[in-house]
Simulated scan of single mutants.
Amino acid sequence: MSERDEQEREFDLRWAESAEHKEPSARARMLAARWKHNPPGPVPFRADPEHLTRRRSSWVSTAVVLGCVAAVIVLLGYINFRAPY
């Protein structure tokens, strides 16, 4: 790309960013039109407890990860111990 093209492109970007009125995106226009006739209902800040799924404790996940790491270390040590020098 030539230097002049770069300068023109930079000028166009500065001109576009300095516009007083920016047109909303197509999705914003679509949602505004949809909500004009059918506004969305209120949404609670947090989900209802009955809709939440039961999650495992973070300690269980930590124990599984540490157990896997320990098993790999033991396996590598066993392989290294049995290898002839």
Rank of each mutant, 00 (worst) to 15 (best):
A70L: 08
M1I: 06
R29M: 15
S2E: 04
N38Q: 12
F11I: 03
H21A: 03
W59F: 04
K36L: 10
W35A: 11
A83S: 12
R27E: 14
A26M: 15
N38V: 06
L31M: 09
R82H: 05
I79G: 02
F81I: 00
V72L: 15
L52S: 08
P84V: 06
F11M: 11
E10C: 10
N38S: 15
S18R: 12
A26W: 12
W35T: 10
F11L: 09
E20D: 07
P42E: 07
P40C: 09
A26H: 15
G67Y: 00
L52Q: 14
S18E: 08
A83L: 09
P39T: 01
R4E: 10
P39K: 02
V43F: 06
P44E: 05
A16F: 07
T53Y: 06
E17G: 05
E50R: 03
A47G: 08
P39A: 07
A33W: 05
R34V: 14
V65E: 12
Q7E: 11
R29V: 14
V65D: 07
V60R: 14
S25I: 08
G67L: 03
D48C: 01
P42Y: 00
P39C: 03
A33N: 11
A83N: 11
A71N: 11
E10A: 13
D5E: 06
P84D: 08
P49S: 05
G41L: 05
S61D: 03
F45R: 13
L76A: 14
S57I: 02
I73S: 07
C68G: 15
K36E: 15
S57H: 13
F11K: 15
A47E: 02
R46L: 14
E6M: 01
F45T: 10
D12H: 04
S18H: 14
L75C: 14
P49E: 02
T62L: 14
A70D: 13
R56Q: 02
C68F: 10
L76C: 15
A71V: 05
N80P: 00
E17S: 15
A26Q: 09
R4I: 08
E10D: 12
S2W: 01
A47M: 02
P42V: 02
G67V: 01
L31H: 08
E17D: 06
E10H: 10
Q7L: 04
K36A: 12
N80L: 01
P49N: 00
P44S: 10
P42A: 13
S18V: 00
A83I: 00
W15S: 12
R54N: 11
V69A: 13
P40K: 03
L13D: 14
E8A: 15
H51E: 08
K36N: 09
P40G: 04
H21E: 06
S61E: 09
E8M: 10
S18F: 03
S2M: 00
W15P: 01
A71E: 09
H37W: 08
R34A: 13
V43G: 06
P84N: 09
V65K: 04
A47C: 06
P84M: 10
A71P: 05
T53V: 03
L66H: 13
P42R: 06
R54I: 11
A83K: 13
F11D: 07
A33P: 01
P44M: 03
R29T: 06
